[in-house]
Amino acid sequence: MRNLWIFLNRYNAFFFLIIFFVAGIILTVRNNAYQRSVTLNSTNGLVGAAYEHLNVVKRYLNLGMVNDSLAKENALLKTEILALRSIDSAKDVTVKDTLRNVQYTYLPAKVIKNSFTLRNNIITINKGRLDGIEPDMAVISPQQGVIGLVRDVSDHLATIRSLLHKDTRISVAIKKNNALGSLIWGDRNFDIRKAFVTDIPNHVKMSVGDTIVTSGAGEFPIGVPVGRVRKTNVSTGDNFLAAEITLFNDFSNLQYVYVIKNKYAAEQKALELNSKNDE
């Protein structure tokens, strides 16, 4: 006991410090509204964060299954929507070939190998010829935006020439006035959220914020949203206007894509080839 007392006495400065320091902190926390709210919040935040992390792990375990079923369901719904939208009322009712005149069908596919850092990017998906995929089919993103065109097909796999490729040109239009242009990624552009629309006729009025959609010419169905104009009148050196746009889709986290099957693709191609030969 005496030793304890001597010990306490020798280091009394330190023990006084502890006593007064704690007293000061208690005063601070009890009497100042800001400090009080912070301490209460951080303890609450801690508990909340722990629960949240637990939940994330749980959800992650089921993620693959959920994704598969969602993609399938989405494809079904989108096909249905297109079917409803594109019923051609002018068509003769005696046509027997289809129940409903569905021009486009969506095929969901999983991205096996994504690429977005190169100059020419190729994406690989897990559906192939046996699933009905042919070269030059259009590929769009499940959320919004275009991905590219099918390039090569094997029995079970296919590669997609992404929009982020120097050879990819997609016909697009400005939504508000249907003025045509072509969508390219652009030379010396390494920003995957940015692309250019070129070949817009000179008289067309456009402004920042205009929505760009696909035009319907080519493989893509009409009206797929592509992006939003960020900068107009980018100088190109020719007689056409160009615009810099922000893409709606993010190529860096691509997991699922939809390949679009155009029932009349072969017919259209043959027809257009014919017309060209006649010129």
Partner: peptide, 26 residues
């Protein structure tokens, strides 16, 4: 500590200067 408390009263930060003064004393 007392000096700190008085300062706190005028700065409206009860406890902050008192704690700091305890550290200062140490």
């Amino acid at each position: 500590f007392g000096t700190g408390i008085v300062m706190d009263a005028f700065y409206d930060t009860l406890g902050v200067h008192a704690t700091a003064c305890a550290v200062l004393a140490f």
